[in-house]
Design a protein around this nucleic acid. Structure first.
Lengths: 217, 217
DNA sequence: CACATGGCGTACCGTACGTTACGGTTCGGC
DNA sequence: GCCGAACCGTAACGTACGGTACGCCATGTG
């Protein structure tokens, strides 16, 4: 496992100007990938390189700050999901699934994951840990309460929430993320995402739904 | 989709010496990631840089040759699987699953996928296409006949082999590959791989197995 | 033996880029 | 109106590395 706490309050003390600079860096990261130069960032952000180095230390510092800045922007509100019921549970799962598909197929997510994966090889920084912590692990933290609630309500049947989550994750993501990261042109329209979310949810319920059929246990 | 034919007979005309050089490059790629330098490869392979450039053109050429060389080494024999039956089908699926988990958790696969993902951003070469073609798509080509055979034998029930394959893929891989690529330390012992393969297979059969129970349709 | 070929080792060149330094400008506080 | 701090723009430095040229040796061929 990774060291936790890779995302605790990353948006610490950032002035508006600094956020603007990080936004510029982020846009450049999406366009150029890991080839972005400090000069390019400075030019795009209309700031001096000296400022970049003063604020972020070095290139890796700028990169991690950029990734954390993006991560801090996608902090979504946890679904309430207290009103249990098969319909609302299904809706929640479908929403999680389509949200996740939308995230991993977005340009920024692809770009960020690409640089993080690239950097994970030579352990200079811990970009991979940051991305993982704010991506897959954040998703788990938000989804598990829903799964637990579903189990409490007798709608789901599983022994380990982690295992159940990972199966759900696999049913939703399948080969999408790795294909996109490797450059496969994969058109994900709103319609296909919706369909995939519904299919994944139904499959998950088929595997982990409590047997509440007429002939129940 | 990617252009196909990214893997047609890549081991074309390679002298033993060249294979040895590519092996050295591969080892270095696993150790150093994308930071390997031409000088380092030359030194490790005990050859001159000039030779590298004569044989492979430039750095990207060397990289793609290395990836293709590795790909050509893992060409496995397609499972016969003509003797149908639920037991043999299950065994085949489990074997596919554990093979795949072993591949994606291997050091070389992780290293190769890392550089391919990194390069996929700036479309210089098509490393991503090569990796995808010899990884996920090669797996699909080998597995689909098994699925089709299972359907012919009345053991499986699905309308689209591609969709069924992708679900199987998701159930097997789940979050393993992305976590490994992002640097998560994920211990995959032979035991856990075997367990995961069995679990994924059972889940797949639960979703796509034909209803042959006593009260059948 | 003369000679050509292929490949090793190494020195070298050009460039891109991270990092630093410096002069000029804006701006808040007194 | 003046001072210092923060910041912009840009020039400069150092280095790492891709790519090339050259000298040398080994091997094979007449």
């Amino acid at each position: 496992m990774l060291q936790a706490s890779a995302d605790i309050d990353t948006s610490e003390a950032l002035t508006e100007r600094q956020k603007a600079v990080l936004d510029a860096a982020l846009r450049l990261l999406v366009e150029e990938g890991d080839n972005l130069t400090m000069t390019a960032v400075a030019r795009r952000a209309s700031c001096s390189k000296e400022t970049l180095y003063k604020w972020f230390g070095d290139r890796d510092g700028l990169l991690t700050a950029t990734v954390q800045w993006q991560a801090s922007k996608v902090r979504v509100a946890p679904v309430d999901g207290k009103g249990l019921g098969l319909a609302s549970l299904t809706a929640s799962l479908e929403r999680f699934a389509s949200d996740w598909l939308n995230v991993i197929s977005s340009d920024t997510s692809i770009a960020l994951n690409r640089v993080a994966v690239g950097h994970a090889g030579s352990g200079k920084d811990n970009l991979g840990a940051v991305v993982l912590e704010n991506g897959r692990f954040a998703l788990a933290r938000r989804l598990k309460p829903v799964l637990e609630a579903g189990r409490q309500a007798g709608l789901l049947d599983f022994s380990d929430a982690e295992t159940a989550f990972r199966s759900f994750f696999g049913l939703v993501a399948r080969d999408v993320q790795i294909r996109l990261l490797l450059g496969d042109r994969l058109e994900l329209t709103e319609a296909t995402i919706g369909g995939d979310a519904a299919r994944a949810t139904q499959q998950f319920l088929a595997l982990f739904g409590a047997k509440t059929g007429p002939q129940g246990l």
